[in-house]
């Protein structure tokens, strides 16, 4: 199938084509860029929700329930669930969708698991493109789920308009979350497994922390208690998500969008520049020569880099 045809089928909402398109993205297939340029114009309609939090807090179960709740409201939903690849073998278990398996056969839901493939920077890019595919295919809501494990995953989740940080009492989650740097990015904090002891304590702790951080933003992050496994608190959570969306639509959305587009553009630009320089270098085996010179201390890395750039720019002019 050509990329044009694939893009056309994605726009029609064809499930097999959506799946294929995401595979192209994951494999960084040469056709990806052309396909994305077809799809990009048609995106921008979905509400993108990021869900993150430490392992064991019940994220996947919660996402499953959120999807159900959105389906009750007649919204179509896409889910991207990100799981880590093994740094040793490159293999991965993509286990998040198990919690949502009963939704698999619902035509209004599309769930896709993605592995990090040991390339978190690249994954942020791939996730954005996968979200764009789901967006262009006409999904009303797109949920991106990832383990809040560090800066790179924070980058992934930043694709979202509304970010949910999920924690569970008693796991020492709060501390992990601070370490992972996800406390700063949350719009809504969810204390899941709220039937456990210390749930109220966790709520208070989060609120205290948020007050210390609170400053200029208009949106004051809220804390919601859920027991996802029983579906409790989920409709209240969806209300808060809706509130946040309305808040964004009042104006914040535009600035947030601009910020995201700026980051995205810079990322792509950087990647493109990097690729064009490196590809040239590697093709001509100049790379090794330069490295040897640096190794022999004939030249310093700074001068070597500037030389490469100057040469490339000159070539382009000629």
């Amino acid at each position: 199938m050509s990329y044009e045809e694939l893009a056309r089928m994605v726009l029609k909402g064809d499930r097999r084509s959506i799946a294929r398109a995401i595979t192209l993205i994951e494999n960084n297939h040469p056709k990806t860029q052309q396909m994305m340029s077809q799809l990009y114009r048609h995106g921008g309609n979905a509400h993108i929700i990021g869900v993150t939090g430490p392992g064991g807090c019940g994220k996947s179960t919660l996402v499953g329930k959120l999807v159900k709740e959105f389906r009750h409201k007649n919204k179509t939903v896409g889910v991207i669930a990100v799981d880590p690849s093994s740094p040793f073998t490159g293999g991965a278990f993509l286990g998040d969708r198990i919690r949502m398996q009963e939704l698999s056969a619902d035509e209004g839901v599309f769930i896709r698991s993605m592995a990090t493939r040991n390339n978190l920077g690249g994954l942020a890019r791939a996730t954005k493109d996968a979200v764009c595919v789901l967006d262009a295919s006409g999904k009303d809501v797109i949920i991106v789920e990832t383990v809040g494990a560090g800066q790179s995953e924070v980058d992934i989740i930043k694709v979202a308009h509304t970010i949910l940080v999920v924690l569970a009492p008693g796991l020492g989650d709060e501390i992990q979350a601070i370490k992972a740097g996800i406390m700063e990015i949350g719009d809504i904090f969810v204390v899941n497994k709220a039937d456990r002891e210390n749930a109220d304590r966790a709520v208070i702790d989060i609120r205290t922390m948020l007050e210390m951080n609170s400053g200029k933003q208009e949106w004051k992050p809220v804390v919601v208690k859920t027991i996802a496994i029983e579906g409790k608190g989920v409709s209240q959570l969806v209300e808060k998500i809706e509130e946040h969306r309305k808040y964004l639509e009042k104006g914040a959305f535009a600035s947030k969008r601009r910020e995201q587009v700026e980051t995205e553009f810079f990322e792509v630009l950087r990647q493109k520049i990097e690729e064009s320089f490196l590809n040239d270098l590697k093709k001509k085996r100049e790379f090794d020569k330069i490295l040897e010179k640096i190794l022999a201390r004939e030249v310093d890395p700074y001068t070597a880099a500037e030389n490469v750039i100057a040469k490339k720019l000159k070539n382009n002019k000629d």
Binding site: S86, T89, G91, A92, G95, I98, Q101, A105, A115
Partner: peptide, 19 residues
């Protein structure tokens, strides 16, 4: 299969053919 470098999705028990 995972240890051989593949990406493995396991469905869990009692799945219908449709699922």
């Amino acid at each position: 299969l995972r240890d051989a470098g593949m990406e493995v999705i396991y469905t869990g028990l009692r799945q219908t053919p449709e699922q």
